[in-house]
Design a protein around this nucleic acid. Structure first.
Lengths: 150, 150
DNA sequence: AGACCTATGCAATTTTATTGCAAAGGTGGA
DNA sequence: TCCACCTTTGCAATAAAATTGCATAGGTCT
């Protein structure tokens, strides 16, 4: 993992649709060398996958929110059960077990507030193991990276 | 945005490295039609970009955390200033202004706890506008999608 | 029914990725 | 220092994939 690998990874994390010749040119290698590096980074798993990132608004899910959840029972079994149920929801994009005042953090991508209301019913109000939940609607986004600085 | 578009978007959000012929086959269209749909979805901005997703552990940033920050002063100017400073940090991958008990949520991707300590010094302890901050270290991830359900 | 617009599939063409191979660069040991 | 070994590189040929033109099919509105 030298300087060129890092440069390549940073380029690919911004835009993986560019041609190999362009990338090669930018990192200062021949196309074949550049391609082989990309293949190696993929084979060794540094590059996990190549994906399309959609525009949330145009894809119909422009409302973002975090919900921080405090559970009643904290056993492995109960935690896992709640996380699985949450993960099965379309509007739930991320689920994390966390340390601190609450136990689970959910990241939501919502179509509208009706969807949020219905989701709350299913996940929090009907769910006997939730003690309390705190909703944080996202007002503004200052930085939103899929990229990892290498 | 018909059923085929949605299918195509879901496929591309999982794996955008597949060939057009494969995708065409899967959605039940000819390669040229499939490609034209992808071009249209890109041109209209539904597809924002194509990126490489790295394996956080192999890229050297395996520790994830949320920090929920309560500000002292909530004017537009002060909020924006703090968010900009946070966004400039390599370890800060996402910055959100939110409603609720706190004002800003940061998502961190850390190399190690030393990096976290140094970051706290710069962002929270040295920063006069931070009233209080709550750290939530991610223990376990139950779902982590870059995808948006369409 | 007819005009019009868009989406489709095929096949030709262009562009891009991939591979073989010889040479260059780097590393560790005698 | 020199040599054997392994990896990376660049070039050029080859293979694969994307892209385009065009005629046709499907839908919609009048």
């Amino acid at each position: 993992m030298d300087r060129i690998d890092k440069k390549l990874l940073n380029l690919l994390q911004r835009d993986a649709s560019r041609t190999n010749v362009e990338l090669a040119d930018e990192v200062g290698l021949s196309p074949s060398s550049c391609l082989r590096r990309m293949q190696r980074l993929t084979k060794t798993g540094v590059i996990d996958r190549i994906v399309a990132i959609l525009n949330p608004a145009k894809a119909g899910r422009s409302i973002k929110a975090f919900v921080s959840v405090e559970m009643k029972l904290h056993t492995e079994q109960h935690m896992r059960r709640f996380m699985d149920i949450a993960a099965a929801e379309e509007a739930v994009s991320n689920v994390y077990a966390v340390t601190g005042q609450t136990d689970v953090v959910l990241m939501l991508r919502l179509r509208d507030m009706e969807e949020f209301d219905a989701l709350c019913d299913r996940l929090f109000r009907d769910h006997s193991n939730v003690a309390r939940f705190y909703t944080m609607m996202v007002i503004r986004t200052g930085k939103e990276e899929t990229a990892i600085a290498v």
